[in-house]
């Protein structure tokens, strides 16, 4: 069973690696940008799924970290820091610090209050950024070149695609290892019974905070990819609708399912793309599909395929 699954994962990965060449052979190069976008959102949704599904924290402000990563990379580039080797880790570090502060305050609350306070923080960041002149205000912040990841040339769309694929694969591997590790078991315990965990001597709040911060740092990494893909950081990436969309992806794909974020991002963005070609009311249909998933597949699309994570 396990080997079959690994085989399946490997063949999917090989197919994904070969995709740029396949598209070239078919003369559909345009889609490589779309495929990259899928991977980036899959990474962002996976990072949120880590917080929501593994850490049990329904965070409604993930756009702050995803969009924040995009803005920081763009800002650093405006300031002359073009090397991805320097600016991306720095961006992840700054976002991690920000998440640490936001998380330390927000984790004093729970349930609906946690949802509201994370939303409030994210909106504060949104309004702060659009009022900043150096961040381009309402217009966003364009970048005139992609980050420099010497010796790899990110200006090449295929290379950016492979990079996004590699980072997504690494994150999924981390999630897989993590869910069987001591930390993963501790998080599972926290999801089931916080009182018992605290009474066993676990510093529950700190363990959750670590999860929140890791999720934010991964989202920042996705943001760094996004700004390179889009050529700009825009206010929409920080807005609450972005947080909402990532949450929809996670719920659609499967909360706490390892591939939940990936499936959710692929299906949601894929549907948007397909439906937009045939109808103006694509959001209506997406809403209906989400409704159906919530009602009939509460463990998400990933839950339909596998028994557990």
């Amino acid at each position: 069973m396990r080997t079959y699954r690994s085989l399946g994962e490997l063949s999917l990965l090989s197919l994904a690696i070969a995709l740029p060449w396949l598209l070239q052979a078919l003369g559909e190069d345009y889609y490589i940008g779309f495929a990259t976008r899928l991977l980036i959102y899959a990474l962002a949704a996976t990072s949120l799924n880590f917080v929501v599904g593994y850490g049990g924290m329904v965070a409604f402000g993930h756009a702050a970290f995803f969009g924040g990563g995009a803005y920081l990379v763009a800002l650093l580039m405006t300031g002359g820091l073009i090397s991805a080797w320097a600016s991306w880790p720095l961006t992840m570090f700054i976002v991690a610090l920000l998440a640490w502060a936001i998380g330390a305050i927000s984790l004093r609350t729970r349930g609906v209050y946690f949802i509201m306070i994370t939303l409030a923080f994210a909106q504060m960041i949104y309004y702060s950024v659009i009022s900043l002149k150096i961040a381009g205000g309402d217009d966003g912040l364009p970048i005139d070149q992609r980050s420099n990841l010497f010796p790899f040339d990110l200006a090449n769309d295929n290379v950016l695609y492979w990079l996004a694929l590699g980072l997504l694969a690494l994150s999924l591997l981390l999630l897989k290892r993590l869910s069987h590790s001591r930390y993963g078991h501790a998080l599972a315990g926290i999801r089931q019974n916080e009182t018992r965990m605290e009474a066993l001597g676990y510093p529950v709040q700190q363990l959750k905070l670590v999860c929140f911060v890791i999720g934010a740092a991964l989202a920042a990494l996705a943001g760094a990819l996004l700004v390179n893909q889009n050529g700009m950081a825009g206010p929409g990436q920080l807005y609450w609708t972005q947080s909402g969309m990532l949450l929809v992806m996670v719920i659609l794909g499967g909360v706490g399912q390892r591939y939940g974020g990936v499936l959710g991002a692929f299906v949601l963005l894929g549907l948007e793309e397909v439906l937009a070609q045939v109808t103006e009311h694509n959001h209506l249909y997406i809403g209906l599909i989400l409704l159906a998933v919530v009602l009939y597949a509460p463990r998400g699309l990933a839950g339909l395929f596998c028994k557990s994570r």
């Binding site: 590790s181 501790a186 670590v210």
Partner: peptide
């Protein structure tokens, strides 16, 4: 697994419950 979590909590060497890579079942 319930009790194992209790034993894990009691092992307070630094970062015991922050280990994210090694499977807990290997202990």
């Amino acid at each position: 697994e319930n009790v194992r979590l209790a034993v894990q909590a009691q092992q307070r060497d630094w970062g015991s419950s922050l280990r994210m890579w090694r499977p807990a079942s290997a202990d």
